[in-house]
Amino acid sequence: MSFQAYLDNIEDKTGLTPRQFIELAKERGFEGPTLKAGPVLEWLKEDHGLGRGHGMALVHIFKNGAKISDKHVGSDGTHRDDSDALWLDGKNNRPRPGRGRRTPAVNQPESSCSAPVTAVGTQTP
Rank of each mutant, 00 (worst) to 15 (best):
H79Q: 11
L88M: 08
A105S: 15
H79E: 13
K67F: 03
P104N: 11
A119F: 02
K36R: 12
P39Y: 09
L58Q: 03
L58W: 03
W43T: 13
Q4T: 04
R19H: 10
R99N: 08
V59G: 01
A66W: 01
V40C: 11
I10M: 06
G74P: 06
D70V: 06
A37N: 08
V73S: 13
K91I: 02
N107Y: 03
E42P: 04
G55L: 09
T124E: 07
T14D: 10
S83Y: 02
L88H: 00
E46Y: 04
E46H: 05
T14L: 08
L86S: 03
D81K: 13
G90W: 08
E23K: 09
F62P: 09
L41V: 06
R28D: 04
Q4F: 06
E110N: 12
Q4H: 06
N107D: 14
G49P: 04
S114V: 13
K71D: 13
T17A: 11
P39I: 10
A37E: 11
M1L: 10
E27I: 06
H48K: 10
G15R: 12
D12Y: 14
R101V: 02
S111D: 14
R99M: 14
H60D: 05
G38E: 13
K91Q: 07
P116F: 09
K36Y: 03
H72T: 11
R19L: 08
F62D: 09
G74K: 10
R52C: 09
T122Y: 12
R101Q: 15
T17H: 04
A85F: 04
E42S: 12
R102A: 12
M56T: 02
L88K: 00
S111E: 13
A66T: 04
G55Y: 13
P104A: 02
D12S: 14
P116M: 06
F30Q: 05
G100P: 08
E110A: 14
D76E: 14
S2W: 05
V120R: 05
F62N: 05
R28I: 00
D47H: 15
G51M: 06
T78A: 12
L86N: 02
V106T: 09
V117Y: 04
K36D: 05
S69K: 03
A37R: 08
L58E: 01
I22W: 01
T124G: 07
P109N: 06
R80L: 12
